[in-house]
Every structure is written in structure tokens, then in C-alpha cells.
Design a protein around this nucleic acid. Structure first.
Lengths: 113, 113
DNA sequence: CCCTCGTTTCGATGGATGTCGATACGAGAC
DNA sequence: GTCTCGTATCGACATCCATCGAAACGAGGG
């Protein structure tokens, strides 16, 4: 806050502290290379879903680490988990992903589509 | 990797390790509530840019902390910095933001627009 | 040249996080 | 019931990160 005003006062930020906290939590779950690869593996799977059993080797991490990452993605609402027999299957929540993408779209930004 | 196959082999993930690393780096710079609020403050400013001098009070953090966050956003390419006289002004790189948003758009996801 | 003031950088610190091996849990097979 | 095997949880550890105060840097103004 300069003695001589250097600029017009800011309009109130669009993002409330709570909204910022919520969005940051989801983005934090995305902000890891291993989780991004897991997500893309599930998203691009032919059947739209994937068995957890194949993921450790796919991302070259231990089984416990992969399980940990999958839990974070599920907690963030980006992935859905379904137990089928003794195997766990995961699929992407397309709406949640679209929500994040659109949250990042700035108010004044013209669509590039 | 189960003894009896539980599912068809995965198609190769779309995201390479390098791509995942790069995207994660940008997302990491977004995955903080303070940085999200800073970004929204700059993005919604009437003039499209903002003087750094007003930001510490706007996000209720020390001036050095705000400078640190701004540097991260600049390093990620999401913000541009311009020194004007003794004040630093910041504006959003709309193209970079759009890139991140579209990177999160899944291949098969139908547009909701 | 010195003083002021906005900004960045430095050093320190407490807390979060990615990773693993080991263990516990659960469901099917025998 | 017991054995097997896929998965989740636990405990530990090294690293990263947000935050602050203090110090350094830089540009104007006197």
C-alpha cells in the first residue's frame, strides 16, 4: 500500500477464500505426474474403466503407492471406484473433470473452439 | 498382475512421463488457494493488469510471500510481469490458461457448451 | 549522493506429501 | 475353515513447500 496511490483499487476478487480452497484441493490432486498418468490411463482405456491390478506396472510404482494415488483421485471426485469380485475398477467422472477445466477458464477468455 | 488375467491389457497411456511431468508442474503452480486468488484478482481487474503493491493486503499474506507466489505463477507462464517505474504490474497469459484448461479436457469428453 | 520505498532474495521452520515395505483386510476357491 | 491373492492401511522417511522476518537490490526524488 504505497503512500501515493499507484493504481485504482482492485475490484473484489471473484474467488472467495472458500472457493479457492476447494478448487486448490482438486487441482492438488491433479498436480502430480503419476496421478496424471493414472488418470489418462483410465480415461483412454477402451472400456472406459480399468482394473487396479494393471496400474502399478503401468506407472512403475509400488502397489501401495498406486493405491494411495487412486484414493486421492477418488477423494477429489475425479475417479469412481467399484469393487467387482476381488478386483477394483476405476472410471473417470467426466463431469468433475469438465468442471475443473471450466473453472480454469477465465471470465473474459474467449473460447478457442 | 494377477495370475489369471482379469482384464484386457491397457492401451498405452496417452500421457508420456515427460508430458505428465510438464503438465503437473503447471498444475502445481495453480494448486494453492493463495495463488488461485492472486490469479483471479489479476484476471478480473478492470484494466486487465494489477500492481503488486495491492496484492499482499488482498490475500492477507506478507509481501514476501506474495512475491514468492507471483514468481511461481510467472515461472509457470501463467502470469506476465512488467516493471513500470518502481512498481511491478502483472497480467494473465490467457493463452497459457486456455492451454491448461484444454489439457484437462479428456479425449472422449463431450463439450458441455 | 543519500534517502525512501517497492520488490526480490535469503535463511529458517513447521507442516504437507510421495514413496516404500510390511501388515491388515476381504473376497473367492478349495 | 483355510489358503490365496488383490487391495487398502500403517509406519517410517526423505523431500518439498508455504510462510515469515530480515536483509539485499533498484529505481526515483531530494
Amino acid at each position: 500500500m504505497p503512500a501515493t496511490p499507484c493504481c485504482p483499487p482492485l475490484a473484489g476478487g471473484v474467488l472467495s477464500t472458500d472457493d479457492a480452497e476447494r478448487l486448490a484441493a482438486v487441482l492438488k490432486s491433479l498436480a502430480d505426474p503419476v496421478r496424471l498418468r493414472l488418470l489418462s490411463l483410465v480415461a483412454t482405456a477402451a472400456a472406459g474403466e480399468v482394473c487396479a491390478c494393471d496400474l502399478p506396472q503401468a506407472v512403475d510404482r509400488s502397489q501401495s503407492t498406486v493405491s494411495h494415488h487412486l484414493s486421492q483421485l477418488v477423494d477429489a471426485g475425479l475417479l469412481h471406484r467399484e469393487q467387482r469380485g476381488k478386483w477394483a475398477w476405476f472410471r473417470v467422472d467426466d463431469a468433475a473433470m469438465a468442471d475443473v477445466a471450466s473453472a480454469l477458464r477465465l471470465p473474459g477468455t474467449r473460447s478457442t473452439i
